[in-house]
Design a protein around this nucleic acid. Structure first.
Lengths: 218, 218
DNA sequence: TAATAATGTTAGGGTATCCTAACAAATATT
DNA sequence: AATATTTGTTAGGATACCCTAACATTATTA
C-alpha cells in the first residue's frame, strides 16, 4: 500500500524532474522546496521510497524515478487532471478553483472509479489548464512547450495551456479576458524588462515577462 | 481543522447512537467495535474530541454528541450519501460497490464541491440504499423503520431501504432479484427459526429472519 | 587548491493514531 | 453484600510524518 504522503512525493518528484533540462533527475532541496517541506524530512522519506523500489537514489546523489515509481506518479497526475475536468466541466468550478480540490481527490484509491470517471467525461485528453491527461495505461501526448515570452513580434498565436496553476495567476489570466484557445497577437516587446504589448479579443494589453513565460502558445 | 480520523469517530458515534433505543448516547466499547479499533485507543480520542467540544463525556460515563459534533457527523453522512448517489447514478457503480469508495470520498474538504455535486445530482433525498440524504443545512426526513421481519402474513409491502450495507448482504439481495421499490408479499413465517417465505417478482423465495431484519419496508 | 557556498544527512524531538497489558470502575449475579 | 463479569482507563510502545540544529559532502570560486 502507498500512503498519501508517498504519492505526493512521487508526484512532486515527477514534476520537479519534468521541470529540469535533462528531465532525468532532481535534488533533495528542489523536491523539498516544491513540497513545502524541510530537506531533512525529504531525506528520510527517500530512504523509504527507495526501499519500496519507487526511486533510484544514494546518499548525496541525485534522485530519479524507477519504472514503477514513474508509473505511480503518472497515475496520480492522471487522477488529478481527470478530477479537474470533472469539477470544471460537470460542476461548474472556476479555472482557479479546481486545483485545490483535485489535490485531495487525486488520492482516492479506486481504479474502477477513475476508469468510470474517464468514460463519464468522454476520455478527455487535456485538463482545464491545457495539460495532457494520461490514459489508463499512463500514456499521453507531450504538448508544445513554446511560451508566449518566446514569440516574435507580429506573430499570431493561440493559448494552449498555462504553466503556473496558482490561484493568483489564473485569476489574473481570467481578469485579462484570456483563456484556453484565446488568440493573441504580439505587438511589442520592451528591451528594458521583457514586458509585452499584446492584442487579444480586440483589446490591447500589457503583460510582464514573468506572465508571458507562464503562458504556453502554439 | 478536523482530521479524517476525527470525522470517522464522529460519524461512528452518530451511527452507534442511532442504533440504540434512546438514540442519545453510547459506550466506548460499542464505538470501538464499530470502528474496528481497540477501546483503549477510543478512550484517548474521546479526550481530544471533548477538548474540541464535539462530544459530552466524562470518565467511565456514556458518550453523546454536542450540537456542533452532531452537525459535523451529519455533514460527513451527507457527503457519504451524495457520493454514493454520484457513483451509482452517474458512474454506473453497483449497489454493493459504492460504500467502500464513498468511505474515502466523504473526507474531501470543500463545501462548494458538495453543494455543486448536490445540485448536479438534482438534490436527491435518498441514497442508493434508501437512506435519507441530509440537505446542506443538515436536515433530513426520518424514514420508516419497519423491517420485513415485522410484517404480518399476506401483507403486501415495498422495499424502501436496506439496513446492512455490507457487500455480502447487498450481493445476496441482488441475487434474490430484489432491489429498492421491489414489491413483496409475505406468504409464511416459520415459528422455528423465524425464516419467511415471500413472493416477489412472481417468484417464491425463502429468507432467514436475519435477512428480513435488514430490509426496511413500507 | 583552499576557502566559501550550496546541498544533503543525521540526531534528537514532537504530534497523531494505533496497539497490548495491566488496572480500575461499574454492573450483574449469586 | 460479596463476587464475578463487563466496561472503560492508564501506561508504555510502535509507526508515519514533520521539525530544528548540527554536521558532512559536494560544488563553486577566488
Amino acid at each position: 500500500m502507498i500512503t498519501q504522503a508517498e504519492e505526493n512525493y512521487l508526484k512532486a518528484l515527477y514534476h520537479v524532474i519534468q521541470g529540469t533540462e535533462a528531465k532525468k533527475e532532481a535534488g533533495t532541496n528542489a523536491l523539498a522546496a516544491y513540497l513545502n517541506i524541510k530537506p531533512a524530512t525529504v531525506s528520510e522519506m527517500l530512504k523509504k521510497l527507495k526501499e519500496k523500489d519507487l526511486l533510484h537514489y544514494q546518499r548525496y546523489g541525485k534522485i530519479s524515478l524507477t519504472k514503477s515509481g514513474e508509473r505511480l506518479a503518472i497515475e496520480v497526475v492522471r487522477k488529478h487532471r481527470l478530477w479537474e475536468c470533472f469539477l470544471y466541466e460537470k460542476l461548474g468550478f472556476g479555472w482557479e478553483e479546481v486545483h485545490e480540490v483535485a489535490e485531495q481527490l487525486e488520492h482516492i484509491q479506486s481504479a474502477k472509479l477513475m476508469d468510470c470517471l474517464d468514460k463519464f467525461l468522454g476520455y478527455p485528453e487535456i485538463d482545464p489548464h491545457g495539460d495532457p491527461i494520461p490514459n489508463a495505461k499512463g500514456e499521453f501526448k507531450i504538448r508544445s512547450k513554446t511560451t508566449l515570452a518566446e514569440m516574435r513580434i507580429n506573430k499570431l498565436c493561440k493559448i494552449v495551456a498555462v504553466k503556473d496553476n496558482s490561484v493568483s495567476f489564473l485569476q489574473y489570466v481570467v481578469k485579462l479576458g484570456l483563456t484556453l484557445s484565446s488568440k493573441i497577437k504580439v505587438l511589442q516587446r520592451q528591451e528594458f524588462d521583457g514586458s509585452m504589448e499584446l492584442e487579444a479579443n480586440g483589446k490591447r494589453i500589457i503583460v510582464s515577462q514573468k506572465f508571458a513565460e507562464n503562458i504556453y502558445v502554439v
